[in-house]
Design a protein around this nucleic acid. Structure first.
Lengths: 191, 191
DNA sequence: GTCTATAGATTGATAGAC
DNA sequence: GTCTATCAATCTATAGAC
């Protein structure tokens, strides 16, 4: 009756636990408990914990790519797209308050561990960066597109870190309103 | 010939290693190796690893407080003070690129571990927040002082996370220039 | 494909000699 | 105050039965 293959269940559980507890703090026992398999069975699907991490990163890359495609297809203009990104800190606010940003916290952790998959994890940042850059170009901000993309990315990371530390909903709303008006003033300049 | 007591050497080594490798990833063996004592001797000075963490947090609180006092005494006006904070991402750029922000990364890690000292670590954020708030009040921004303090704090966290992921010096310089001009325009409004 | 049993290393922590 | 020796628990990973 299992619709999902065990392998995919392991990846899904690891994805969740790596986010909630961190990569190193999550043991095979934790994942095995959640998927309800024995630890031994584990190694039939993956050679090592690092291999699971790679699978999780690839899963996140794929699902993030799909999300960005969806945002683009649902938006009327590039401004709408950028707004979709900005508002993600409200949409995911509950989880961000508890665990921070899934992209930023993994990147930071792997940097400290000096982990081999560090650069793969940073591809998630690059995905958002390139996509945002594209939107700013479409907005007529070609010369500053990447600078603006990095600013929006950094802004979201800062908001996530502070929201995680202070759990302050008003702060998050304030910052989103500020970025919305910044985006608005930017778009007007070119209209 | 040891000027520093062993206890203080342990705290100093732990302070450094917790920053560079993360709290959980740092073992007693790592600290003992650096201080060049045996693991057994360890427990003469501290009952547990958590107790070392607390000592490290208290050390950081004290040294941060001293730094803020120094900034204040060296500054001509509150604008200078805020600038001192903003420019810390340039001053500490090398370490930030390698290990991120010591305040933000510890706060994030302890949140994931759901560690008992999580709130103590967040006192470091509170220290900066209150200090920045005070500067903005002195700048004549009483009604928005805390909002601005949180914005500057979040900004620094975002820059640190992105600098750690992309190791891009130009990005850091751009962002500091942006924040400098933001501060300048803010100060002018009130003059 | 899933299980039990277990290896081998490392973890935080303790006991006791000096 | 520092050491060696060691504990019990946990970790990733392996071997082999079913």
């Amino acid at each position: 009756m299992n619709r999902k293959a065990t392998r995919e269940e392991i990846i899904a559980a690891a994805d969740q636990l790596f986010y909630q507890q961190g990569y190193e703090h999550t043991s095979f026992a934790d994942i095995a408990d959640q998927v309800k398999i024995s630890r031994g069975n584990f190694y039939h699907h993956f050679k090592s914990k690092d291999e699971i991490l790679n699978a999780v990163i690839n899963l996140r890359l794929a699902s993030t790519g799909k999300m960005l495609d969806r945002w683009e297809s649902e938006a009327r203009d590039p401004k709408d797209c950028i707004r979709s990104y900005i508002h993600i800190v409200i949409t995911n606010q509950t989880k961000i308050k508890l665990y921070g940003c899934p992209v930023g916290t993994l990147s930071t952790e792997l940097a400290k561990l000096n982990h081999v998959s560090k650069s793969e994890a940073n591809q998630l940042f690059a995905l958002f960066r390139n996509w945002l850059c594209k939107q700013f170009v479409a907005l007529g901000q070609k010369s500053k597109a990447d600078e603006f993309a990095m600013r929006v990315l950094a802004w979201s990371q800062g908001v996530a870190t502070m929201a995680n530390a202070f759990r302050d909903e008003k702060f998050v709303n304030h910052e989103v309103a500020y970025m919305d008006s910044w985006l608005e003033s930017l778009a007007k300049k070119k209209n």
